[in-house]
Nucleic acid binder design. Structure first.
Lengths: 97, 97
DNA sequence: TAAATATATAGACGAGCATCTATGAATAGC
DNA sequence: GCTATTCATAGATGCTCGTCTATATATTTA
């Protein structure tokens, strides 16, 4: 169901501070675009731009509701991508980290 | 001993294809700069540039030996950073992934 | 239908970055 | 000591990207 985890696209999604802050804000609850913009000292179009990036990378869930659109982090995708990174770049490390 | 894992610097290090290829090549064995440049269709200065980036991010081990300098991936740092990402962005995911 | 609200999109601008060529610095071998 | 080899650094260039303002699109409400 999920697209195949691409380690480079995943890393690019995480390589910006604003995007990581967005991810943190919508990690465990649904957030509207306006809420995110309010808490993130950037404009609403900037937030929309980053959300589009995260959406293309399959890193957020989307739920339109009336005029608002709610986003929530796709934790499973994050876990999957981290798993790929571990397999690629930490194959000899024994759990736990 | 290790510097604190910064998720943004870690992601930026992984956000370039050439750097990920370098990481893969020196993941499990020591590689000289020249070896990496030969296998990576980029010039030697470009490889040195990326290795400097990875070194600043504490993602590679270094071993000068005569005229050559060997690099090996710091798998522990990768695992540590992935652990931070999992804690931040996949706190509700149950193992195994 | 008109107005207000919420989000997405388009275009512009400046900073950062990946790459190259040229060159400097360090080491090994003759 | 001189030459060849290996790597790092400096500077230039073109492209990508993060952010903004302005505007379009969609939805709710009066």
């Amino acid at each position: 169901m999920n697209s195949i985890a691409d380690p480079i696209e995943f890393a690019r999604a995480l390589s910006d501070r604003t995007r990581q802050e967005i991810m943190k804000l919508c990690c465990c609850e649904w957030r509207s675009v306006g809420e995110l913009a309010d808490e993130l000292d950037v404009t609403q179009p900037t937030v929309s731009h980053h959300l589009a990036f995260l959406r293309d990378a399959n890193l957020v869930h989307i739920r339109p509701e009336g005029r608002k659109t709610f986003y929530a982090l796709n934790q499973d995708a994050v876990a999957s991508c981290c798993g790929v990174l571990m397999l690629n770049y930490a194959p000899d490390v024994k759990e736990p980290t």
